[in-house]
């Protein structure tokens, strides 16, 4: 497969997305637009249904004038970038030590049973996917999970049920 034939920079993305990425680029000194690679990938992942594809990554590389491999490196290093489709609600459950000793196993098991999926899987209707994550820095509220931008703490099976119902 050949490298994507890259269009002009202003043919990439919508004007709104370009403005958003440009806003990120502006945070850094002149000539350091590579600094915006993480933000650009985040923005593109969000509008791409929560995951990245090679084509999207190549576009980000072209937009930032970087070799594609520089973007692949970043996109595969950080755990928040997804390379397979995810559910509309990506349930990121912490199983690290404070959560583990506060029964995160039970939370995971409840989700496995209720949704019929394991870590790394998506429900058939595309509504939920499950992801095991490392410590999210909310150990005081263990066990916890993150969905989208929000943290849900002090989880119990009952609490989970009502959270799941609220997530469209």
């Amino acid at each position: 497969m050949n490298a994507l034939e890259i269009k002009n920079r202003d043919e990439l993305f919508t004007p709104e997305i370009r403005a958003e990425i440009d806003h990120e680029i502006a945070k850094y000194p002149e000539g350091e637009s590579q600094s915006a690679s993480m933000a650009a990938l985040r923005i593109i992942q969000d509008v791409n249904g929560g995951s990245l594809t090679q084509e999207r990554m190549d576009e980000v590389a072209a937009y930032l004038d970087l070799p594609p491999i520089a973007i692949y490196e970043v996109a595969t290093f950080y755990s928040m970038y997804e390379h397979k489709p995810v559910g509309r609600n990506k349930l990121c459950v912490c199983t690290n030590i404070s959560c583990m000793i506060n029964n995160s196993d039970q939370i995971v098991e409840h989700l496995n049973n209720k949704l019929g999926i394991k870590f790394g899987e998506v429900t058939e209707d595309g509504r939920y996917s499950l992801k095991e994550v490392e410590c999210l820095g909310a150990c005081g509220g263990a066990p916890m999970m993150q969905v989208g931008q929000k943290y849900y703490e002090n989880l119990t099976p009952e609490k989970l049920d009502s959270i799941l119902d609220e997530l469209e």
Binding site: N2, A3, P67, P68, I69, A70, Y72, T76, F77
Partner: peptide
């Protein structure tokens, strides 16, 4: 920059990442 190190930790792989 055609070859890079993608992934991290033990899963870090040297290569082009995609078939290129």
């Amino acid at each position: 920059r055609e070859i890079g190190a993608t992934g991290r930790g033990e899963h870090m792989t040297i290569g082009t990442f995609v078939a290129r």
